[in-house]
Design a protein around this nucleic acid. Structure first.
Lengths: 254, 254
DNA sequence: GATGGCCTAATTGTCGGACAATCATACGAT
DNA sequence: ATCGTATGATTGTCCGACAATTAGGCCATC
């Protein structure tokens, strides 16, 4: 057989339009908060129909490059929010049959360094937010769903304290995937709440006195403890993680 | 001031349709590869216009939940590809003014554990692909762009060898963000190629004999070396990373 | 001067219909 | 069995339309 021909690629117009707008955003030609022209105007400029423009806008909107400020009509340029991007990642991982063990292993590797760097770089404001998260969890008399959310929030605050966006974003999907199983665990294992609260306390103390070694060590122990909790709760480590679907209706009740 | 009222939320139809389809995909009711009904049929079922359905499809398509098999008309359900998701993450990070230092620091924390776990879990097939990637880079007489891509490919192969999708996906955005600056570095620092090749060789050897300590250690050194290279190339660590925009035209030349 | 009401124009969300180009499929010819 | 053809389905794109909402200007009132 001779050299195969390259595929003929037909790119639909809505994708070209989306790509053109996306390029201007990525090149900072369009800056955050800037308002996009109206759909009619865009259609005129690109020389396509408004329907085509709208399909392109949906693509950009879904990617987080455009958003509509609440109560506003025109779309504004925006930077994809970390939470939204993380949701996409965790959704992808869940669809790829990621096991709980994989998530736990990643946490094992990622969280201790995060704690260490947080101990090194944290500011007073970071301490405040971590403390607040810890206290909210330690209050403890909340329902399971909220408690789980608060436990995740503690990790998020520590992640932000690293002042490294890459690390902070990297842990977000893990927290998403952790959440559902953590909910089961907290319900099933009576001592889980107090153990988590104690771990948070020690981590917070270490970060407070900038003790990088202790912060890393306690965080490592904290993660190891999770695994024990899962075993106590009879949650198999090799079963698939799930993810709550409520992502697209960011704006809730229709 | 009294308790503020909740915002009135009006969810447009195209988003409801997208959410409804996404939910069926996430719940595995619609399985991968399954073909979606035609737009007309979907419009009939949802009781909306075809234009509305199309906007919803663009949203799902952009999120990677739907794709069109090449040369096919109907959309099929798909799981978001890791590469595509990673592109979104790196794009988001770039737009959030992530500095090169942050990327490097994340690599410092993430890659050594990946090498260690790869050394523990690698199969013979993994060794083959890592070896192939190493050889392609070591051949060395390629142009800069290709060389950079091959260097990243080495990391990818090691990541896959961990058999942990979470870790493998976590490093992908870092490689995307590394690429542009690595291109500059390889061009400016003459000895860069050989040093990278040597590091790859040692890492590969360690992974081959399942020496987890050595794998972690050499990888750590490899990453530290990157930093030296950047200093030699006069690339400031606190400058923003960039990302190539060619993401949306996955299908190239229009 | 600030506030609130009112009017007009602009904008979005949605609809209906239309058509060319392409794809899927069955049928028939060689 | 392979190739050409006819037919229907599907997508990409267009046009035009309309209700609901928002933006912005103008004016009266306090």
């Amino acid at each position: 057989m001779s050299v195969p021909f390259a595929q003929i690629l037909r790119v639909p117009g809505y994708r070209k339009v989306a790509a053109a707008i996306a390029e201007r955003i990525l090149s900072r030609e369009l800056r955050e908060g800037e308002r996009l022209p109206s759909e009619t105007e865009l259609a005129r400029q690109f020389g396509v129909n408004r329907s085509t423009v709208r399909e392109a806008l949906r693509e950009l909107e879904s990617g987080g490059l455009l958003e509509r400020r609440p109560g506003s009509k025109l779309m504004t340029v925006s930077r994809p929010q970390h939470r939204a991007v993380a949701k996409d990642v965790s959704r992808a991982l869940a669809l790829h049959d990621v096991t709980f063990f994989e998530v736990w292993e990643a946490l094992t590797q990622l969280e201790p360094p995060i704690a260490e760097i947080a101990a090194r770089n944290r500011t007073a404001a970071d301490l405040d937010s971590i403390t607040a998260a810890r206290q909210q969890f330690a209050a403890g008399n909340t329902e399971t769903g909220k408690a789980v959310h608060q436990a995740a929030e503690f990790f998020r605050c520590v992640g932000r304290a690293t002042h490294n966006q890459v690390l902070a974003l990297a842990q977000e999907p893990l927290l998403d995937l952790l959440e559902p199983s953590l909910r089961v665990m907290i319900d099933k294992v009576p001592q889980a709440r107090s153990r988590i609260a104690a771990a948070q306390q020690r981590i917070l103390e270490a970060i407070t006195r900038r003790d990088v070694e202790a912060a890393r060590g306690w965080m490592a122990k904290h993660i190891r403890d999770f695994r024990k909790g899962y075993e106590l709760a009879d949650i198999a480590l090799d079963c698939r993680v799930h993810v709550s679907p409520h992502r697209l209706p960011v704006t809730g009740c229709g």
